[in-house]
Every structure is written in structure tokens, then in C-alpha cells.
Design a protein around this nucleic acid. Structure first.
Length: 852
RNA sequence: GCCGAUAUGGUGGAAUUGGUAGACACAACGGACUUAAAAUCCGUUGGCCGUUAGGCCGUGCGGGUUCGAGUCCCGCUGUCGGUACCA
């Protein structure tokens, strides 16, 4: 890129205004109880997803959402809101630890460096953050409350009757045993098969496996003792309470499907002495169950396997155990399985059906056992075809008979007392019959699993738990935060033994009392950071009552963060986890609203100039620092908003950046003209005079359009309107100063530096222009009367085709307009040989003459 | 496979409740200024036919509703994203 003269000296005034905002604490906002707090002001809480401060620095994707929220912040401030717009750091995480392994340096150092770089980059973009509220998940004062919230979960149970969390103390008072109590905690210990990565030295959540495998790490499956959070208790509420939220429909659906509610029945089958319960969503097909399948890990497999099948079954179980979930599904093209030799009795007709084990049935869902109805389930059909098992049709498809398998709804046949019933009724009847006979019951299942909450890494929050005599105990609150000790080296132990177990001095407390050595996942800190911003230094609680009531909107329905902007890649995990924690805190009375995020908006991904996803390997990554260097922060901000609709995926274009840069240059030159010496002086065209009709019209049209578009996050069209306004004003011989100032006011949320600079220069010269910074001004008032025209252009159509355009009075009645239309020469030409059948008049729009 | 999003000029994208398709930009071309270039300013720019006037066609494809469809309905196709034996 050749050096060239800048269109305007952004490199001089942008840092100057940023320093001004910092010095004046322009965007600091007081809390209830503070001296300058004004309770009469309405609040608005705009939240960005806080970044993980990676070594790579800011990516152009970050300023996309951040600029959007910044525009909202500045706009709402101008409208008189107390706006909370904070930023912080999700600073625990594997990359810093990987760096520590390589260098032997404490991960805190790397984290601090990266954080400083991120902060510098964000400040350079002029965002209106209240930096006094900055939080960092790795700060001891933050860790303290993350651990405290964990203890809230640990010390609570889910009360089914009241459908909410309650203190565990109630169970103690009720005289439950220690084991019974531990089994009901919201944070509990369980032995479960987990994804263990030997080279990362940690267990991963199911959702993380894919990501790390792509980066070349190995992940295997093995059973381990882990901390779990009982998110499944909240499954129904997490679905139901989405309803009142202003989130994109698709995102709600995504979460709903992730939670995966299905209604059906549990049915008991007898296998010899043993009872095996299956879950099915199609109890109406019970007469068509021709075999049964158990998951290979099902505890009853060994009981029911016959001697001559024992070897085959054991071999199959062995083969499955070493396969990861991924391999199980990757190899899912062909069904595999083994006959156990056992037979089950179908309770509805007493028929004996063979019992198989197969890995297409998973232990983790339902009961780990199914009744197979090959005629009406594709998987069962495939399995039955492969192993030549019986197929009995029990549902008749509506319309044409169907070859093979029919999984839809129809009418029951070959099903005794269900015959002739449509699927829905058959389901109800058989379920009632099973319940009456004590052979089964209605049942609801969720795909959602409990949340595996422990990791074996170093760089995370330690669990505030100690072990005594094989039992876990909570640390007293007074011992929080519990910080991890420094280590000599951060290399994984090579075994599933957590890294912290290396620090024996720290772990062993004497008398056989040991600290828990697992750490929390990164999600822990990010689950509640939006609460801490509201009250970032509170030493008594994660968030104080008054701060919660005001910022989270106790009296609003449903309350919570007013606008949350961040990538849809977090739409299921982070957003689900945070909602879960929030509900627990709500149930326990620590917060006053049931949902954390009232409105959520995911911006679309920004692709590389080649239309591909930005990545180092493709060499198409755009660095925001480079863009700021060449065109300034305002241009970067404005371009990212002008690219297209915020929610859309869109490719980067440097030419596009130049386009908005030129626009800002045009605004600059409308106010200032450069002389021979290169100094910028106020344009002679600017006049302190009342704006004429045309100027008022375009300026007020701009106030209206920009305001509406900000509300709906349609920033691209707001910007194009400001371009129209600028084009209109700048081509004039004299320009009313007040029109320019109004334009600067509406431009200021988008491009705050240049707007402030121009306003300051105008204020220094013209008495009529306020020198008060735009950031503290009110949003300009719209006067609709300027937008009303006496005459409007309407379109004349003949048979739907545009033939002419005429001007008519704004209040002309239909008859007048129709007469004027028919009088048009062009219309006359087209209808000369035709008969007019009908004339449609749309006031202010068009006249359509229908003729043939 | 299932779920969701989406399809408009050479490009990014605009278009109230159905009512002038292509706003605003980018690129391209032509012109002015300049010794020259950059920057700036002015003009042209969906396709086809036509010297002009003007006409015809045109919002992924095929139907439909309507005076009128980018927009609504039915049936497809492509692209992107999510998810995957969840019984």
C-alpha cells in the first residue's frame, strides 16, 4: 500500500478524543448508592460477549458486535438512559496453559500480556466502555465468587414438587443420610465415561472433543470420577422460559432441540427373572416389537446372556468399550450387534422376542434399552434386515401403501385392542392400559445430559472442596478464594491424575484430609460475569441487591440484560449454562430475575476477502490494527456496520473500507477546507442561518431513519441515509451550520471521533453551536412536519406496467387522482384501443388502469 | 438424513401492510482539474433491441393467487450453518 495523504487527520484526533473520554470518565456509570446516581433515569444494559484474550490479538470479528453495541450505548445515552456497557476478560483457558507448558512460565504472565494487548486494541477503537467495571475471570477476587456460586450449587438440591432449587439443609433436617444427600446435590460426583485426552492432560466436554481433535490432539474414552452439575433438573424450565425472551426464533429452536424433550412411555419387559425397562416414543407400536436391544454397557447384559453366547457378547462389549463415541457414529454405516441368547416377554401379547446387544443403542439416553419395531423405525428396520429378524407391520400409512419402513403416523393394525385407532389415540390408550396393569407409565426424556464440570488442568478455578474419609466436604466461605499453588512445571501428568496433584504440599492437609485436585472448566467464569459487571467490587456478594434490582431490572418483565450481542457459536453451550446458573441463583434468592438475557442478537461471521473463513493457514486474516493505521478507527467501525445486515455472513472488502473512508472525508471537507500550508480551515459555505425547507427535509429524514434503524440494529441502512444527507448538503453553495451539527449528532454513535472533532471546531467558531461534547448531548428531536410534501409523485400503470409518472396534491381525493391519471397522454396512448374495466387508486402511490 | 438460514446487477447490498426493483456503496467506463499521477469533482452503468423517442425481458427454477408478487401459497434446486443411530 503506497503512502498517501490522509483524507483527514484521524491519526491526530482519534487518540486525542480517546484520551479525553478516559480522562473525563465519560462513559462511567454510577451504581445505586453512589453519590451521582440518579434513580429517576431508566437503565439500559448492553452486553458484549467478553473475549478470551488470545495471543493472536483482536480479530475483525470482534469489532463487529462491539461496534453494534457501542452504537446502541451512545444512542441510548443520548436518549437519557443510564447505560451499562462493560468489558472484561474470559482469561482462564487451555492456550495459556499450553504456552506455560512450552515456556515454563506461569500462565498468568502470558494471560496478562495478552489482556493488555486486547485492552489497547479495544481502546484504540474508541468504544464507550465503562472501564472502571472491567472484570477478569482469573482475578482472585473474581475466582472467589465463581467458587462461591459453585458452593451454592453444591449446597442445593432440586425440589421436584416446587420445581426449583432449595438449600440442601432441608434434606439434612429431614434426616436423610449422607449418601442420600450427596446423591441429590446440584453439584455431585459421579463415575462416568469421559473424553480423556492424554496429550492435553485433561478431560473434555463432549462439545469440545471435535475442536481439539481438529487441532491434532488425541481423545479417548474412559470411565473417571468427575464432578457433574445437575442441569437436567432444569431441562423443562430451560425450554419453557425461553418463551418470553426476545431472541431469534432459530436460536430458541436450537436450544430447544439441544435439550431435546421427547414424550413417550416406559414399558417393562420380563427376561426370565429380570425386568428390563425400555423407553419408546411410540408405545402404539408395542405389538410390532419383534426383538429387544440393550446397550452393550447395560448392567443386565451379563445376567441374561446364555452360556453359549457369552464369548460373543464379551467380545462385542470389549470392542465397543475401546471405541469412542465418534468412532461409533463414524462406523454407523453398518449396524453391528450380538444375540445374547436371552428372550424377553412382550407384555402386551406374551410373545417371546430375542434380546440383542448393539451399539446403536446407547446407555446414556432413556433406559439404555429399546423395544425394536422394525416395521416402523428406520434403525430397527436396518438392523432387522441385516440380521434377518422378524418384521410385523402394526401401523397403516395413510394413502398409498409404503415399501419397507414407515415411521410416520397412521392407523393401528395387527394390534389387538388398538386396531383402527389413529396413532395419537393408540398412544394414549396403550399408555393407560400399561399404567393400569402396572407394566409401564408415561415418560418424558431429554437429550440433555448433566454437565461434566471438572477438568484436570492447572489454569482454572480449583474446587473449594476437601476429601475426608472418602467423603467430599465444602470449604467454608471464609477460605475463598482458594487459589492454585505455583507449579515448577506445567506438563501433563500423562495420567488422568489432575495437574494440581503434583503440588503435594497444597493437596495434603494432614490427618488424611486432601484437597480436590480437579479444576473448573472455562465456562465457570463466563457463566456469571454479566452479574459481576453490575457490582464489580462488592466484597460481600457476587452482586449486591440494589445493583441487581436496578441493572438486572427487578421490576421489568422478564428483566435481565437488555441487549446481549455475541456469536451464535455460543448459542447452545454458554447461553444454556449461564441460564442454568442464573436460575439456580434466582431460586436461592440471590438474583431477582429468572432469565439473564432479555434480548440476544448474534452477528454474522465476517469472511475473508476470498469468501472463505478467515484463518492463518489461508492467509486471509484481516488485522484491525492495520485497518486503523490506514483509515482510522471511525472508518473501521463504520465499514463493519455498512457491510450488510448485522446478522448476515459477509465477506471483507478493503475497497469497501475505502468507500466509507471517502464518505467520512466528504463529511470532513464539508466543514473544513485545506489551505496552501495544509491547514484545515472552516468552509466559507457554512452559514449561521435557518435551514431552508430542503435542508430540513433531508436532515429530519435522516434523524428519523437513523433512529429507527439503530433500534432495529439495521446499521447499514442508517449509514446509507447519512450518506444521502451528506451528498445533499455538501453539494450546496451555502450550508446551514445547524444542519451540519444535527448530522454530526446522528453520526456520532457510529463515528464518534470525527463527529466530536468537527463539532468542537464548529463550536469554537460559531456561537450557535454548543461546545459540549456530542457524547453528552441529547439525541436530536425529530419534527415530522418537515417530511410532509404538498405534492407527491405517483406512478401510472396500465395493466400493471408503469407508463407515466405525475405529481398530484398530497390530499387529493381518489376521483381527482383518477381523472388526472386518465388524462395522461401516455396512458391514453396505451388504452386507446382498449376498454377500461377498472381503475385502482392507491393514494400517494399509484394508479393502475385495467383495460382490455 | 433431520433442523435452520439464504438465493436480487460485474460485487456488497436497498426496497412499509403485496404497490415505481436495483437506494447507498464498490468496481468499470467517459469527462474536468493537473506538466503528470494521486486525491477531488461531474457523468454513464441490470440485459436485449433502437440513432433518438421508445419498447421488450428481468429478483434461483416450475406452477398458483391478485388489478398488481422480490414480497403471499404449492412444488423443486443450489449455497451456507447446526446436528447426527436420542429409540
Amino acid at each position: 500500500m503506497p503512502t498517501r495523504r490522509k483524507q483527514f487527520p484521524f491519526d491526530e484526533f482519534e487518540p486525542r478524543w480517546q484520551a479525553h473520554w478516559e480522562k473525563e470518565s465519560t462513559f462511567s456509570v454510577p451504581n445505586p448508592g453512589d453519590a451521582d446516581f440518579d434513580a429517576a433515569k431508566p437503565k439500559y444494559y448492553v452486553l458484549d460477549m467478553f473475549p478470551y484474550p488470545s495471543g493472536a490479538g483482536l480479530h475483525v470479528g470482534h469489532p463487529e458486535g462491539y461496534t453494534a453495541t457501542d452504537i446502541i450505548t451512545r444512542y441510548k445515552r443520548m436518549q437519557g438512559y443510564n447505560v451499562l456497557h462493560p468489558m472484561g476478560w474470559d482469561a482462564f483457558g487451555l492456550p495459556a496453559e499450553q504456552h506455560a507448558i512450552k515456556t515454563g512460565e506461569h500462565p498468568r504472565i502470558n494471560t496478562e500480556n495478552n489482556t493488555a494487548n486486547f485492552r489497547r486494541q479495544l481502546k484504540r477503537l474508541g468504544f464507550a466502555y465503562d472501564w472502571s467495571r472491567e472484570v477478569n475471570t482469573t482475578d482472585p477476587s473474581y475466582v472467589k465468587w465463581t467458587q462461591w456460586i459453585f458452593l451454592q450449587l453444591y449446597n442445593s438440591y432440586f425440589c421436584e414438587e416446587e420445581n426449583k432449587a432449595k438449600p440442601i439443609k432441608e434434606l439434612e433436617d429431614a434426616g436423610l443420610s449422607r449418601e442420600e444427600i450427596d446423591d441429590r446435590r446440584l453439584a455431585y460426583v459421579a463415575e462416568t465415561p469421559v473424553n480423556w485426552s492424554p496429550d492435553l492432560g485433561t478431560v473434555l466436554a463432549n462439545e469440545e472433543v471435535e475442536e481439539w481433535k481438529e487441532k491434532g490432539h488425541t481423545v479417548e474414552r474412559r470411565p473417571l470420577r468427575q464432578w457433574m452439575l445437575r442441569i437436567t433438573a432444569y431441562a423443562q424450565r430451560l425450554i419453557d422460559e425461553l418463551e418470553g425472551l426476545d431472541w431469534p426464533k432459530g436460536i430458541k429452536l436450537l436450544q430447544t432441540n439441544w435439550i431435546g424433550r421427547s414424550e413417550g412411555a416406559e414399558v417393562d419387559f420380563l427376561i426370565g427373572e429380570e425386568t428390563v425397562t425400555v423407553f419408546t416414543t411410540r408405545p402404539d407400536t408395542l405389538f410390532g416389537a419383534t426383538y429387544m436391544v440393550l446397550a452393550p454397557e447395560h448392567p443386565l447384559v451379563s445376567e441374561i446372556t446364555t452360556k453359549d453366547q457369552a464369548d460373543a457378547v464379551a467380545a462385542y462389549q470389549q470392542a465397543c468399550a475401546t471405541k469412542s463415541d465418534l468412532e461409533r457414529t463414524e462406523l454407523a454405516k453398518e449396524k453391528t450387534g450380538v444375540f445374547t441368547g436371552g428372550f424377553a416377554i412382550n407384555p402386551v401379547n406374551g410373545k417371546e422376542i430375542p434380546v440383542w446387544i448393539a451399539d446403536y443403542v446407547m446407555m446414556g439416553y432413556g433406559t439404555g434399552a429399546i423395544m425394536a419395531v422394525p416395521a416402523h423405525d428406520e434403525r430397527d428396520f436396518e438392523f432387522a434386515s441385516q440380521f434377518k429378524l422378524e418384521v410385523i407391520e402394526v401401523v397403516e400409512a395413510p394413502g398409498e401403501p409404503i415399501e419397507g419402513c414407515f415411521a410416520g403416523e397412521g392407523t393401528s393394525i395387527n394390534s389387538g385392542f388398538l386396531d383402527g385407532l389413529p396413532t395419537k389415540e393408540a398412544k394414549a390408550k396403550i399408555t393407560a392400559w400399561l399404567e393400569e396393569k402396572g407394566l409401564g407409565k408415561k415418560s418424558i426424556n431429554f437429550k440433555l445430559r448433566d454437565w461434566l464440570f471438572s477438568r484436570q488442568r492447572y489454569w482454572g478455578e480449583p474446587f473449594p472442596i476437601v476429601w475426608r474419609d472418602g467423603h467430599h466436604e465444602a470449604l467454608p466461605e471464609s477460605e475463598l478464594p482458594l487459589l492454585a499453588p505455583d507449579l515448577k512445571d506445567y506438563k501433563p501428568t500423562g495420567t488422568p491424575e489432575p495437574l494440581l496433584s503434583k503440588a503435594t504440599d497444597w493437596v495434603e492437609l494432614g490427618d488424611g484430609v486432601m484437597r480436590e485436585t480437579n479444576t473448573m472448566p472455562q465456562w465457570g467464569g463466563s457463566c456469571w460475569y454479566y452479574l459481576r459487571y453490575c457490582d464489580p467490587t462488592n466484597p460481600e456478594a457476587p452482586i449486591g441487591k440494589a445493583a441487581d434490582a436496578y441493572w438486572m431490572g427487578e421490576n421489568q418483565n422478564p428483566g435481565g440484560v437488555d441487549l446481549y450481542v455475541g456469536g451464535s457459536e455460543h448459542a447452545v453451550l454458554h447461553l444454556l449454562y449461564a441460564r442454568f446458573w442464573h436460575k439456580v441463583l434466582f431460586d436461592l434468592g440471590h438474583v431477582t430475575t429468572p432469565e439473564p438475557f432479555q434480548r440476544y442478537f448474534p452477528p454474522g461471521l465476517i469472511m475473508g476477502e476470498d469468501g472463505q473463513k478467515m484463518s492463518k493457514s489461508r492467509g486471509n486474516v484481516v488485522n484491525p490494527d492495520d485497518v486503523v493505521e490506514l483509515y482510522g478507527a471511525d472508518s473501521l467501525r463504520l465499514y463493519e456496520m455498512f457491510m450488510g445486515p448485522l446478522e448476515q455472513v459477509k465477506p471483507w472488502s478493503m475497497k469497501g473500507v475505502e468507500g466509507v473512508y471517502r464518505f467520512l472525508g466528504k463529511v470532513w471537507r464539508m466543514v473544513l477546507v485545506q489551505d496552501q500550508e495544509g491547514d484545515w480551515n472552516l468552509s466559507e459555505k457554512l452559514k449561521e442561518q435557518d435551514p431552508d425547507k430542503a435542508a430540513n427535509k433531508v436532515v429530519h429524514a435522516t434523524i428519523k431513519k437513523v433512529g429507527e434503524d439503530i433500534e432495529s440494529l439495521s446499521f447499514n441502512t442508517a449509514i446509507s441515509q447519512m450518506m444521502v444527507c451528506t451528498n445533499e448538503l455538501s453539494k450546496r453553495d451555502t450550508i446551514p451550520v445547524s444542519s451540519v451539527v444535527t448530522l454530526l449528532e446522528v453520526l456520532s454513535p457510529f463515528a464518534p471521533h470525527i463527529s466530536e472533532e468537527l463539532n468542537a471546531r464548529l463550536g469554537a467558531r460559531f456561537d450557535s453551536v454548543s461546545s459540549e461534547p456530542l457524547a453528552d448531548r441529547e439525541w436530536p428531536e425529530l419534527d415530522e412536519s418537515y417530511l410532509v410534501e404538498d405534492e407527491v409523485e405517483i406512478v401510472l400503470q396500465v395493466n400493471g406496467k408503469v407508463r407515466d409518472k405525475i405529481m398530484v396534491g398530497k390530499d387529493d381525493d381518489k376521483e381527482t387522482v383518477e381523472a388526472a391519471a386518465l388524462a395522461s397522454e401516455k396512458v391514453q396512448n396505451f388504452i386507446a384501443d382498449l376498454t377500461v374495466r377498472k381503475v385502482i387508486v392507491v393514494p400517494g402511490r399509484l394508479v393502475n388502469v385495467v383495460a382490455n
